[in-house]
Nucleic acid binder design. Structure first.
Lengths: 127, 127
DNA sequence: TCAACTGTTATAGTGTTATTATAACAGTTA
DNA sequence: TAACTGTTATAATAACACTATAACAGTTGA
């Protein structure tokens, strides 16, 4: 899977990386159990520092989305897309509430929110 | 409207403030045209610095959600909840895509996403 | 066994951001 | 004039983001 970063973005580099990997998994570009590039390899490929990649991987590991093995490397979790972490429930609620509130402040009512969600799920290909 | 901040939160103080104000508007606690506390008054009330409040207000002004008048003070935009800023469309798409992707990685499929959205809109009271 | 690869840890430097603290400025209003 | 608005400027501290080296420990293949 192709990963890109924009050094001029306001979003931090490691956040760009982790978001792209999450999107790749959701989209099916990355399959459960699939290997990810090594921290050194990806850093070299992207022209950034090893630790920046390591931090992105560390956050994904913290969320249970990838599995890191000290000697074997990094891969997508086998149970991702299936198992739900209960601790994530509150985080998800808070993020969606913020999106709904901000959307309402910008003229997105419930119908428009739902239509946009439907459209984006179609694009991603989620059932 | 009651505003609170948690200095131990990972979220920045000004981000907490702006999110709560957006939620207050969405929820109807704050009405279009309604006055907001002065930067000094709110800072004093919350026990934080004037500039931190000022930054929260500045970001909300940037998003067109509040109106700042150098001498009259701060108030909620009159057209908030109605008018849509076209520039916000891309931001909204990106944020929702990220939420969908992250949700999918944590076991939230489309049905669960939609159900949660319905539930939260009911709680907020959006039509 | 040796070399090459994994992620991890440590240390250090630089630049940016978040927050606080004062102070002054300019416009409005009673 | 006095008291209130937001704004701007300056400075200090702390935390964060990113980079640069270097070393460590486990695994794997030649």
């Amino acid at each position: 899977m192709l990963l890109r970063i924009d050094v001029n973005s306001e979003e931090t580099l490691y956040s760009q990386l982790s978001n792209q990997i999450k999107y790749g998994i959701a989209r099916g570009y990355l399959m459960p159990g699939e290997d990810l590039p090594s921290v050194r390899g990806l850093a070299s490929e992207l022209g950034i520092n090893m630790h920046t990649v390591s931090k992105a991987y560390a956050t994904l590991k913290e969320e249970g989305i990838i599995i890191i093995n000290r000697s074997k490397g990094v891969k997508v979790s086998d149970e991702v897309l299936i198992s739900r972490d209960d601790d994530y429930g509150k985080i998800f609620d808070k993020k969606m509430t913020e999106l709904i509130a901000e959307g309402l402040c910008n003229g997105y009512d419930k119908d428009q929110f739902m239509n946009k969600a439907n459209q984006l799920f179609d694009e991603i290909g989620g059932k």
